[in-house]
Design a protein around this nucleic acid. Structure first.
Lengths: 64, 64
DNA sequence: TTTTGAGGTAAAGTTTGTTTTACATATTAT
DNA sequence: ATAATATGTAAAACAAACTTTACCTCAAAA
């Protein structure tokens, strides 16, 4: 799975720590997701979508 | 998280085993998700959405 | 009335997601 | 040039997702 977290963060000038706090997860979790180490859980993906107010599919995408 | 798997299955007259096979997971996984025992992973949610050709949010919903 | 198919469940085990702590490197501000 | 902030990473531990095996109940079919 690819994701646009880094870009969405940049658009808002948020740090990984900022995003982590907004989502109530650790900064390492954000870093790991951004670096593709693992995918978020579905509940966390929903929180991300709600935070950015866009569909999950426009933030996370299956890799071809 | 709530989900509409049971209804989507029923509309297609699919068994839990049918759906499990289509998604390449075990029947117990489908049963557990339908019964709310746990949420699917994000990759599995994407497979479900692709199979039913609808957005993740129209299949899975955060509980109020 | 026996068999079959569908759904529910449980235990044990593996894999994946997440936290905490900790440190290292890079970038920015003073 | 130094200090502070942002990012990358790693290990250990725990939690959640998923598999396999196995068994049980119920309803419908044969």
């Amino acid at each position: 799975m690819k994701n646009r977290l880094k870009v969405l963060r940049a658009e808002r000038d948020w740090t990984q720590a900022d995003l982590a706090q907004a989502l109530d997860v650790s900064r390492q979790t954000i870093n790991a997701i951004e670096k593709g180490k693992f995918d978020p859980s579905l509940p966390l993906a929903f929180k991300v979508a709600r935070l950015f107010q866009m569909p999950i599919e426009s933030i996370f995408q299956e890799e071809p």
